[in-house]
Design a protein around this nucleic acid. Structure first.
Ligand SMILES: [Zn+2]
Ligand SMILES: [Zn+2]
Ligand SMILES: [Zn+2]
Ligand SMILES: [Zn+2]
Lengths: 140, 140
DNA sequence: TGTAAACTCTATACTAACTATAGAGTCAAG
DNA sequence: CTTGACTCTATAGTTAGTATAGAGTTTACA
């Protein structure tokens, strides 16, 4: 199987497959005489594993770690659990950041109805820093 | 005020200020004889505006758009409202993606207790592609 | 006056995980 | 034998900065 077919079957793009190879997530395959990569179906499983991990937003470096763990089957799997736990914490904190952001944006949105002009826009006004507005005769 | 003082007063790093200048978010200031940037306090307001926008996770390109709107005060502010609305949608979809991810991770975490070995890890097992497991005598 | 410290300058490389070329080579069909 | 589809490597771009290197400038102090 050449890289084009692997791409179709795995759902990874050709460039992504070459990128994973360069990053050491999958091993370099044999080549044909003409220097084309030649894959067997085992790599499909590897790519599938990587896709599953990426769907959980694990980083490539974390995935690399998991792959290397798989290659030492006897060792305890504690590190896997810890990785997932850590990852959960990251995701939770991202969610709470985004919720705060969402609240802020909602509130900001309320500051302006339609059809004002830019200089009177309630949203832009809110984004500007709060200044002592000099009421017209005051100076610096 | 030279760039170091501006950095302290604005809370942006020196590199960030130069970066914003390069990206056209703030205008290039005067220079001293020795080619040092010289700022007046107006730029503090501009940086503050940018920081407020970044806190809402608006992109630099969106902020650039807002800045250019501010420079045409007469035009209607509809575009501002639309930007915030669009941004809200993006944030909402990120939140729901992350919630799904969180659920998936939680469930995955349950697949493994402590103290197993890597080859029997429930989490790794879950991440591997589902295969017809050949029960030992079966072949391809 | 000399010089050392602190500051600033530009240009470049790095981050993450790809994507998108350019330009060259390979292969199969007609 | 040529066309088209495929593949190769190397390089640049994406975002919003951060972090250098190496050079020049300014300030403080002895
Ligand atoms: Zn993680
Ligand atoms: Zn408005
Ligand atoms: Zn946006
Ligand atoms: Zn486990």
């Amino acid at each position: 199987m050449k890289i084009g077919e692997l791409a179709k079957r795995s759902g990874c793009s050709i460039q992504t497959i070459r990128y994973y190879e360069k990053e050491g997530l999958i091993s370099a395959p044999e080549r044909t005489e003409g220097n084309f990569r030649l894959y067997n179906s085992v790599v499909l499983e590897k790519l599938s594993f990587i896709k599953n991990c990426r769907a959980l937003d694990l980083t490539l470096s974390e995935i690399k770690h998991l792959v290397s763990l798989q290659n030492s089957p006897g060792t305890p799997c504690e590190a896997v659990n810890e990785m997932i736990d850590t990852h959960l914490l990251v995701v939770e904190s991202r969610i709470s950041d985004l919720k705060k952001l969402h609240g802020d944006l909602k509130q900001l949105r309320l500051k302006c109805g339609n059809a004002r002009s830019v200089d009177q826009c309630g949203i832009l006004g809110e984004l500007l820093p709060k200044l002592e507005r000099s009421p017209s005769g005051t100076r610096k």
